[in-house]
Simulated scan of single mutants.
Amino acid sequence: MRMGRIDGRLALLHNDRALDVERASNGKFAAEPDRVFERWDEFAQWSEGRSLDDAVPFSPAQVGAPVLRPSQVFAIGLNYQAHAAEAGVPPKITSPAVFTKFVTSITGPYDTVMLPSDRVDWEVELVAVIGRPGHRVREKDGWSHVAGLTVGQDLSERTVQLAGPVPQFSLGKSYPGFSPIGPSLVSVDEFADPDDLALSCALDGEVLQDGRTKDLIFSVPELVARLSAVVPLVPGDLIFTGTPSGVGMGRNPERYLQPGGTLVSTVEGIGSLTNQLVAESSAHDTA
């Protein structure tokens, strides 16, 4: 099952066609996509084998983030060994580095992103969305608590992130628009192997990152187990699972995003985010 937000409404998706869920279910499910996660099992059962004959075409301009108001957003740093190495972190990481991205940073898969400085970095990520509540979930049950997977971009303003006596990860990664997700949420059963998906990031056609989720140090089920060992997980929660190597800060010389570019972030079997980059002052000038 593939779902998304079309014109702000919950829809089942197939290629470039969308079925409005509230109308198709005669009001059984609300139009607001964020409300469906608390009834995820029921919704998944309803959508299974659902005819899309009444689906209608949609355009990228109509597509929003599949989740806009999660209760919790977890993000994992240094979760690929090659990325940890380019960041100068010693091997043998034994515990995930966890931070949050504040909810107001979430934006859609095709939205314009304002760059507040000349030190904004890119980080393509697989994002898991929680569908069942869980506290102290066993790793072997981790996937059963995941509603689906989507594409995420963990944009990072490195000056703010690294300022102060200790890094300010959450602040530096939470400017408005710094958490694009989408273009759809794909249920776990759609993947032949959800633990091994290709993901990449490209700027104006130049590939900057190219990895596979099989190289995650802490897999999705292990992250569900480790996070829920401390914090009860709530339907609709997001887990940004980490980025592969190739970020701008890890290059010599360092490289960062510039206004005028187009950033494309892709995960196999889900789709791509396509975000135009503009200077913050330019965006204000044209508002």
Rank of each mutant, 00 (worst) to 15 (best):
L13F: 06
P133R: 10
P232K: 11
L273Q: 07
A198N: 12
P165Y: 12
L185M: 14
A225C: 14
P183H: 09
A163G: 11
V234W: 09
D16S: 14
V188K: 06
L216F: 13
G269H: 11
E125A: 09
V36C: 13
D210Q: 14
D195E: 15
D210G: 04
L10T: 00
P33C: 11
V186R: 01
L19Y: 03
P176Y: 08
P232F: 02
P116M: 09
Y175K: 07
F218Y: 09
L185T: 02
E42N: 12
P176K: 11
G142W: 03
L263H: 01
V113S: 04
T107V: 07
V137P: 00
T266S: 15
F240L: 15
A97G: 08
M249R: 15
W143P: 03
H284P: 00
Q81C: 00
A75R: 06
M249N: 11
Y80R: 09
P194S: 10
Q168L: 14
Q72Y: 06
V127Q: 05
V234A: 05
A75P: 03
A84H: 05
L68V: 10
Y175I: 01
K28G: 08
A128P: 03
V127E: 03
C201Q: 02
L10Q: 08
V188Q: 05
G131E: 02
A11R: 01
D53W: 05
P66R: 02
L203Y: 11
L257W: 03
S51F: 11
P221Q: 13
E157G: 08
Q209I: 03
S228L: 08
T100N: 15
R136N: 15
Q62V: 00
R2P: 00
P259I: 04
M3C: 14
R212Y: 08
A128K: 05
